[in-house]
């Protein structure tokens, strides 16, 4: 099974769900607006379904990426890291969570000493956004940062 096919099949399922959900949109009495809020998304869902089927029946993608089990495994671990980051962001605060994510990211990408650049970058971005631009980032357990 090619990754190309799997992804388009997934989009087919999404399009079917979209078309189905579109029929449940509340259509107010059509005095001023005869097409209403329902017609257009229904049409979109159907077009999406037709396109997905046409692609699945046709030639495989010429310029799709080569997907191996290794790529999928690594992708899963990157996604897990991103999910952990987003979960920990409000709890640990921006600087700690970002230092953690960057250390893992730098090390994964092949850096031999990932911790110090991770700390520097996290603190710099934090200072840029909070001190210079007056935006607030989650502080978490380090209230002074």
């Amino acid at each position: 099974m090619r990754a190309d096919r799997v992804f388009v099949a997934l989009l087919l399922v999404i399009s079917i769900a979209y078309a189905f959900e579109a029929t449940r949109i509340f259509n107010p009495p059509a005095i001023a607006d005869p097409l209403g809020p329902r017609a257009f998304p229904q049409f979109l869902g159907i077009v999406g379904v037709v396109l997905c089927i046409a692609i699945l029946l046709g030639r495989p993608a010429e310029d799709g990426l080569p997907i191996t089990p290794t790529v999928l495994r690594e992708m899963a671990s990157i996604l897990a890291a991103l999910a952990a980051y987003t979960l920990l962001l409000p709890r640990l605060g921006f600087v700690l969570a970002t230092t953690g994510l960057l250390t893992a990211g730098f090390a994964y990408a092949g850096a031999r000493r990932p911790v110090i650049p991770a700390v520097i970058y996290a603190v710099l971005v934090h200072l840029l956004f909070t001190r210079l631009l007056g935006m607030r980032l989650p502080t978490g357990i380090l209230p002074w940062l």
Binding site: L101, L102, G105, F106, A109, Y121
Partner: peptide
């Protein structure tokens, strides 16, 4: 690039958050 790529990811996250 091994430093730049993860850093871009974080920059994108901060941008979205802000």
């Amino acid at each position: 690039a091994r430093f730049l790529m993860p850093a871009i990811g974080v920059f994108a996250a901060v941008g979205a958050y802000s």
